[in-house]
Amino acid sequence: MNITIGKPWAVSEKGGRLNNEDSIYPLPEAAKSNQKLFLVCDGVGGAEKGEIASSLACDSFQTFFSTFREGEPSSDFINKAIRYTEARFDDYTAIHPEAKGMATTLTMAFVGTAGITLAHVGDSRIYHFRQGNILYQTEDHSLVNSLVKLGKISREEAVNHPQRNVIVRAIQGTSRPTEADVVLLNDIQAGDYLFMCSDGVLERLTNEDLSLIFKQSGGPEGIKNAIMSACSGKTRDNFSFYIIPIQNVLDSTGIKQNILSFLYSFI
């Protein structure tokens, strides 16, 4: 499968907080259509250096991928990247004990040849949109989502639950190891979008709101502007996101057909 993406669009803003504890990779100005790896991380900890945690996770993941990846990243490979990141956290807190307790969520998308591999830890999300419809959405590793799954509260009650920001998985260090949920999306079509975001975006926009934006905003720049309009000056939290447009998808059959069509044009 040969997946071509269009220009990715990204934002990372401090929102209503004094500093930005979110980090994304690559930075918006560095994102190109040949980019394969995308990350959005939301640091946890405030005084415990949440901004260091998210930045260190982005740096560690891209370093691990660029150094050790051969072919498609498997679930085992991605969780080895988490082990490496946790060890980097240990190294940092050994030198900076004031950062003990720092943690981060992580969402990852990798555009490969078998499809698009997604991984996540925590309550930052990844969506797969087609014509505004949500085909796939990651499941939050959060307390309220656990309560919903157990039938203790409804999804409507979860929206304004006083503990809605409590997460049950995060990247922290080797003393509290975690694992990512990993999935391979292979139903990918031209015109689809991947959307990765920290929970600051979800503070302002429901799934229904996002579906409407992806259906009606007329391209990735319009989508970015609509989300910015909904969040800027209106969120209590930092908000960050990546919009990844799928431009074209060819499987081996499609490639062969294109070659044959080209050859037949000369007969």
Rank of each mutant, 00 (worst) to 15 (best):
G122W: 00
Y25L: 10
T206K: 02
I3S: 09
F89Y: 11
L263A: 15
C41T: 07
L39T: 03
G101A: 11
L135K: 12
A103V: 09
N225H: 06
G46C: 05
P28W: 05
H128K: 08
F241H: 05
S23Y: 01
S142K: 02
H141A: 10
G222W: 01
L210T: 08
E179A: 11
I52A: 10
S229N: 15
T117L: 01
F195C: 07
V159C: 03
T85E: 03
I223A: 07
E139R: 12
A10K: 00
A226C: 09
D42N: 04
A119I: 00
L263Y: 15
V249G: 10
I5F: 04
S198M: 12
R17F: 05
S124G: 07
A10S: 13
G200W: 01
G43V: 02
Y264T: 14
A81L: 12
P8F: 10
N258V: 07
E13K: 11
F129I: 06
S261D: 15
E51H: 06
N186W: 02
D199V: 02
E51T: 04
E48N: 14
I243G: 05
E179I: 05
V121L: 08
G101F: 07
Q257L: 13
E13V: 04
A230H: 04
P26E: 12
G222H: 03
H96R: 13
I5M: 06
E13A: 12
I78G: 02
P245Y: 01
P73F: 13
T235R: 01
K224Y: 11
M196S: 04
N145Y: 14
T138W: 00
I267A: 15
G6V: 05
F64K: 00
E208F: 09
F77Q: 00
V44Y: 00
V11I: 10
R169P: 05
L205P: 02
R169M: 10
H141Q: 07
K224T: 14
D237M: 01
Y84R: 04
D42F: 00
F241A: 09
R204V: 07
N145W: 12
L56A: 09
L205M: 10
G71S: 06
N186E: 15
I134M: 01
E51V: 07
N34G: 14
R83W: 14
K149R: 13
E70K: 15
A87C: 10
Y264E: 13
C58Y: 04
L56K: 01
Y264H: 15
T107A: 13
D187F: 03
N19F: 11
G45A: 10
I78R: 00
I243Y: 02
A230G: 08
E139K: 13
N20I: 07
S229K: 15
F77A: 12
Q137T: 14
S33M: 10
L202K: 04
Y136T: 07
T104L: 07
I213F: 05
L194H: 02
S12I: 10
D140E: 11
R88W: 05
N225T: 08
E13W: 02
N186L: 03
R169Y: 05
Y242N: 06
Y264C: 14
L150Q: 14
E179Y: 08
L212Q: 05
L135V: 06
D140P: 00
T85N: 03
L263W: 12
G101L: 09
S146G: 13
A230Y: 03
D140M: 03
R204N: 12
D199H: 02
E86H: 04
V168P: 01
H128Y: 06
I213Y: 03
N248F: 11
R88A: 15
T178Y: 00
